[in-house]
Structures are given as C-alpha cells and as structure tokens.
Design a protein around this nucleic acid. Sequence first.
DNA 1: TAATTGACCGATC
DNA 2: AGATCGGCCAATT
Length: 113
Amino acid sequence: MDGNAAMDSIWRVVAAIPAGRVCTYGEVAKLAGLPRGARQVGRALGKAPASRQLPWYRVIAAGGRIALPKGSAGYRAQVSKLRAEGVVVSNGRVRLPDFQWSPDLDELIWGPP
DNA sequence: TAATTGACCGATC
DNA sequence: AGATCGGCCAATT
C-alpha cells in the first residue's frame, strides 16, 4: 500500500488528463493540491508502477517542453506516444495554447463526462 | 542530522 | 533563443 496522499492525488490528476491533451508539472501539482510541488509530481511519476497505467507522457515541463533530456529513451517514448494521440510535438516542444488541458475549461467546452 | 539531488518553474542575463 | 540563478519541496545518501 502506498498510504501516500500526495502521490495518490498526483496520480489521480494525471490519470484525469484526456488523450490528445497535455498538462504541465506545475499545473498537475496545483490541481493535486501542491501549489509548489512540481518536483513532487516528477518524483511521483518516476516512482509510479506500470500497473497504475499512468499516462505520464501527457505530463510535460513548463512552456510545453519535454522534461526528459532530448535523445533519451524516455524522451523518445513520450514524443512517440503523444504523437500517437494527435499531439503535435515539434523540436521537442508542444504548442501549449492548442494542447494544454484545463479541467474547468475542458468541462465547459466539451462537457462533463 | 546535514547535505545532496531531482521526469520543475519563473525570472533574468 | 539559449544559458544561468535562485526558489520549492520531498526523498535519499
């Protein structure tokens, strides 16, 4: 058992990101109740077991940049998965104005599930 | 217990 | 546009 509320909240938020959309670490942290816990998000993702099926690749760094070092295995995997969902990744960055996910805005535009 | 580190962020140079 | 600095917070050494 994890017993870790922070990590659980983070995983819940990340799991709530719809396909074809992305969210920054800072944003995920804020939604999870950790206004300055961007680093915690990264740590939680790194520790997240695969059994969680967590869409970690939908979480990117501020400014739409890929958090992982360019050329790294994780980097390529993230870009590949994002592109597979229709997210345009150019030069290691995502166009945030077009793909950044906001829960409230999303519900307003697309309607709640 | 203190110091280091890290899938970060925002401002500044 | 790219590099650097300081700040934040938690886990690890």
